[in-house]
Write a protein that binds this DNA or RNA. Structure first.
Lengths: 146, 146
DNA sequence: GCGCCAACGTTGGTTAAACCAACGTATCAT
DNA sequence: ATGATACGTTGGTTTAACCAACGTTGGCGC
């Protein structure tokens, strides 16, 4: 679509602008993830595991903002690919402990590059100062509505 | 979710921040539209009709970034509510000309207030200068990917 | 110990947005 | 004239976000 021909009422509406950019951000990222065997939420979970270490599925969900039920499916995908392993928590048998494998760590590093490229494509028209500014404003908003 | 406990890899990712804020923006707007008989895309279409005058469904779709098929359903909704009327274009009988009614104009004005309130709620933590800045950056991005 | 509530993982959904394919009708270009 | 294109419509698919219910397990009051 040509967003420049949209009504001014929409073009000046922050919620609309955010939604438009959300669609393109998702497309840009999804395009580059194509063929990697991962989706956005897989990357989120691998990142959480790398940063915080082994975690239960419920914790993973809380960290990444995903529903428990969606985490269950995503973990199954990651198991299939061999990027995580899973074991019952001996201290709490309700929990599954999900842990990054060597292959998972390697995959995460590869994905970091892919996702980084996507950011560059998305943010191409902005200077690095402007990118920082945009990130700061969006972070403030996200934290406020957390 | 508490976005503050998300992995730093995600928290510093513009595409992730945009998506997070997109979810809250949609929720904030949808909450306030609840009970008005309209959804976001209805507002977009009413706005386009008010700004550019009567238009074909295909034009409406292009203006608002909606698929032809989705416009068809949305126009039916607006007809039901009496906010638009529709007639065959005498100059091109493939086209339906959709036109805002008096009631539609009134509804649009009411929605302007509702949507405005939603923006205030969404942007609460930002000063008006920061809001302008955010809008400017997002507009540049949206135009670039148009 | 027993009973109750809460958390966990899982299954099987729903909703909304974005999108696509195909059809019949009408228009345009050449 | 005829082939390509545009229009509106129907009937889908896909993805993200979310919800309800279930059996299992753990924590806690009593």
């Amino acid at each position: 679509m040509d967003t420049r021909s949209a009504p001014a009422r929409l073009r000046t509406l922050t919620s609309w602008l955010i939604n438009q950019n959300s669609v393109t951000a998702r497309n840009v990222v999804a395009d580059r993830l194509e063929g990697t065997g991962t989706r956005r939420y897989h990357y989120s979970m691998l990142a959480a595991l790398e940063e915080f270490g082994p975690a239960s599925q419920a914790d993973l969900g809380r960290r990444c903002g995903l529903d428990r039920s969606d985490v269950a499916g995503a973990v199954a995908d990651l198991l299939d690919q061999g990027w995580v392993d899973r074991a019952a928590d001996p201290l709490d048998r309700r929990r599954n402990i999900v842990r990054l494998t060597k292959a998972g760590t390697k995959q995460l590093k590869a994905l970091d590059r892919v996702i980084g490229d996507a950011q560059d494509a998305l943010l191409e028209p902005l200077s690095s100062a402007e990118r920082a500014q945009l990130n700061e404003l969006l972070t403030r908003l996200a934290d406020h509505h957390a």
